[in-house]
Write a protein that binds this DNA or RNA. Structure first.
Lengths: 230, 230
DNA sequence: ACCTGAACACCGTTCAAGT
DNA sequence: ACCTGAACACCGTTCAAGT
């Protein structure tokens, strides 16, 4: 309330007329991620993004060379969240560290379910993605993994997380098929044609995070054997 | 050459004028897959597909309710190839059967590298995908896996393959970054900022199929332990 | 200097009109 | 009955013209 109407600038934050208060890049990426979260990746067009920012499409091309770069920044923001999540715990073993990192990435992609398909469009080389990869690889090497094994371990874990995260984007999506609906679909198969499918559908739905942990522990257990001289 | 000019129909196979020789659905899907293979998923538009078939976009909507259904059929065709590949070997253990199935799917997606992102758009429920899942689940249950374990095992393997296959679509793609170029990119990182990344990049590139087998064997070894009472 | 409306060449989808 | 041109409401991207 201090000097609320003191040396006020003309039009404190009016409707973004023709001044130069360029929109900060963070705000653009925030809004873009928001659109993806709320309405899906298909809903993110340069036009609607510009509109949400009270701007024009041409203005966006001042910040990004094109849609691909915008998407790269959205993806890297999610990697940033994953890095934060992985930091929360102080692991005492490389097994715990791997589990924490993979789970943090999984959680970040869970929070932003519609982002996963965007990961398929390009190899993540944003700063947050680079930092996260470096941290994981360094941790593995420090834990006694020879570099070739560390490389394979990281690649395997990363792709496992990605494969799982993609499942998010097809659940509760536009086609309205979520995880439990999907198991209902399998349960209603012709039992004479698909007996095994029906049998496991009866035992489903398994929560997705439980399915994720299941395979993650398999991989980590396998890595343990390899490292300790399998 | 028998009666080559006998009771010839008018215009043997001329330029698809206004007759009713409806284009067989297989041909449409063939052509669509061909476009995806050759020019990428983005190049597959209803317009260019119609053009390649000497037809119009509206005609396509007689065979498919929309683009989504066309894509579903393309995806299921690839599952069909995977099923054929898995059939080629007569496995003697569930471990071999899992390896064969996952490898066949991997190989099919390798042959059709640009198809992988399409898998992210919907849960595969085409006939070939259903049949492959049924076969795998039945094989696991027959091998003594309790249904809940079989369900998790299948989900884990399926998502692992998908996560790996997606990597295909980003290599050699429009951005011209392939697997070896990518490792070169990592090798050229700032070594003081990314020492571990540079260290493993020196030891790369690992062929993608070797990376794939590495994690696959980890998963199968882990499943063995679980089933035989871990 | 920075922003913008309007254009260009595309999309998926639909429908009245043709044969 | 089946096919089709042309339209509708969108895209990403660019550029001359505004302030």
């Amino acid at each position: 309330m201090i000097s609320a109407r003191g040396h006020a600038r003309p039009e404190p934050q009016a409707r973004r007329s023709s001044g130069r208060p360029a929109i900060p890049l963070d705000v653009i990426v925030d809004r873009a991620l928001q659109i993806v979260d709320e309405e899906g990746a298909d809903a993110l067009s340069m036009r609607v993004l510009a509109q949400r920012l009270d701007s024009g499409t041409a203005t966006l091309y001042r910040h990004f060379t094109g849609r691909a770069e915008l998407i790269a920044q959205i993806v890297d923001r999610v990697f940033g969240e994953a890095a934060l999540g992985a930091d929360e715990e102080a692991p005492t073993s490389w097994q715990q560290a791997c589990q924490a990192a993979a789970t943090a990435m999984f959680a970040a992609l869970n929070r932003h379910q519609k982002v996963a398909p965007l990961l398929a469009e390009q190899v993540p080389i944003g700063p947050n993605a680079m930092a996260l990869r470096e941290r994981c690889l360094a941790m593995l090497i420090d834990s006694g993994f020879p570099p070739p094994l560390a490389a394979r371990a990281y690649a395997t874990l990363a792709r496992y997380v990605l494969g799982f995260a993609i499942q998010f984007s097809t659940q509760g999506a536009a086609d309205g098929r979520d995880h439990t609906e999907q198991s209902a679909l399998f349960r209603n198969c012709d039992p004479s044609q698909f007996p095994a499918t029906v049998a496991v559908a009866d035992v489903l739905p398994v929560p997705l995070d439980e399915e994720f942990i299941f395979g993650l522990e398999l991989l980590i257990a396998g890595l343990s054997q390899l490292r300790d001289g399998g």
